[in-house]
Amino acid sequence: MITTIISVVAYVVLAPLVGGLLAGLDRIVSARMQGRVGPPLLQPFYDVFKLREKEDITVNNVQDFYVTCFFFFVVVTGAFFFAGGDLLLVIFTLTLASVFLIVAAFSSNSPYSQIGAERELLQMMAYEPMVLLTAIGFYMTEGSFKVKDIISGGAMDFLPLVGVFFGFIFILTLKFRKSPFDLSMSHHAHQELVKGLVTEFSGKTMALIEVAHWYENIFLLGFVFLFFANGTIWGAVIGVVVCLLAYFLEVFIDNNFARMKWQVAINSAWLVALILGVINLFIVYLI
């Protein structure tokens, strides 16, 4: 019980710090790949602080509510994860959070944010099967959906679930909203429709979305970590290293692809889920 509380509190406090640092690192690495020096490491934090000082404006009186709920449930999702809770519960709560964000964008009735919202919805439909298959994969190898049991389970799930692992890495591009699948919102100004999903958000609301993404990124990497955790220190070390590598890989992909059409996103994500996910599960079932 005590450890559960400690890890949840640690997540709530540390996740935005680590997430923000990762975002800063992302920007430096991206800049180096593009032959620039890039901003300081703490730039994402400066950005958020600056956003918080902007004038308080909004386009209607309900949007902030939806965004706040989005933020709240992203944090809750991560809390479930780090409390060692049920993976399906984690996924469903994340869906709830995402729906709040999408509804926030819809509520503005602005063309650009609506296009962003629908694209976000499409991305959700694209990655959802693979995310669910990942959770089911853990259940089939460990006999439990609980993060607690998966982490302490003796075997390294990466080996039986190697297909699921690569499938999950593939859809991470969608989840992190990295190019080529940054359809709903992008930090590459040259390929964005105004500002996509977040067109109508500003100031503190926008800052909240940024921080929510840091939270989200951390527990998504937590999923990657689960593949390697086997209750030993070595498993944990390998897990953290692979998380960093995965993040670096996403940044690398982000800088090497232009945005692709939405058809590519859904076709490829579902194909990956079918081939790497379903077939892997079928093999796990057989052995």
């Binding site: 509804v103 629908e118 959700m124 439909m125």
Partner: peptide
């Protein structure tokens, strides 16, 4: 995944101010 898609787009339509 498909279920979430069609409900959310309707939900969005309802929520639009």
């Amino acid at each position: 995944a498909a279920t979430a898609f069609y409900w959310t787009k309707w939900l969005g339509k309802m929520a639009a101010v």
